[in-house]
């Protein structure tokens, strides 16, 4: 597999990988590193890439596992303080998003969700995969995913309603 082939294969989903990594790791820098790591891993095994049935689903699973490992590792825990103080100078989009206050609220609410629900909301509501694909990526059955998703949506909805009606009711 040549470099150009690989790039054209990876292009369509590298942003999805990045967004999932960012949802889980919060910091943009960490997410960039994670994405790079994932893409390099894919490139290293590019000879075997033909054997995978669905490269995109495979890489999303890889991303999920990699990010969860990162979160568990000591290094990430040490870095936490730095990240919470971290101000991003070039993420114009993130700033735009958070400038719209209530949208910023949603992203904050999502940070508080358990990892599993975070991943599922990211994959379903943002990346718009169907349930079968998500089930394959996460190695779960569809009912469990629906249950988790409806719980996550309920949490987001309740917290949003609370902030929305804060001081009124």
């Amino acid at each position: 597999m040549k470099q150009a082939d690989f790039v054209s294969l990876v292009m369509p989903f590298k942003d999805k990988v990045f967004r999932l990594a960012k949802r889980l790791l919060v910091s943009r820098e960490e997410a960039e590193d994670a994405t790079q790591e994932i893409l390099l891993k894919l490139w290293k095994n590019s000879k075997k890439i033909g054997d995978y049935k669905n490269v995109e689903a495979f890489s999303m699973t890889m991303t999920k596992n990699f990010c969860l490992d990162r979160l568990k590792s000591k290094q990430a825990q040490n870095l936490k303080i730095v990240h919470s103080n971290y101000t991003d100078s070039n993420s114009s989009l993130q700033k735009q998003v958070e400038a719209k206050d209530s949208i910023g609220w949603v992203s904050k609410i999502m940070e508080d969700l358990p990892e599993q629900q975070k991943i599922i909301v990211q994959l379903r509501d943002i990346e718009e995969y169907d349930y079968a694909e998500i089930a394959k990526m996460l190695d779960m059955n569809e009912t469990a995913i629906r249950v988790n998703l409806s719980r996550a949506r309920k949490t987001i909805r309740e917290k949003l309603t609370n902030t929305h009606q804060y001081g009124i009711k």
Partner: peptide, 8 residues
């Protein structure tokens, strides 16, 4: 829909 616009 905003989040989906973010790019690597």
């Amino acid at each position: 829909s905003e989040s989906k616009k973010e790019q690597y």
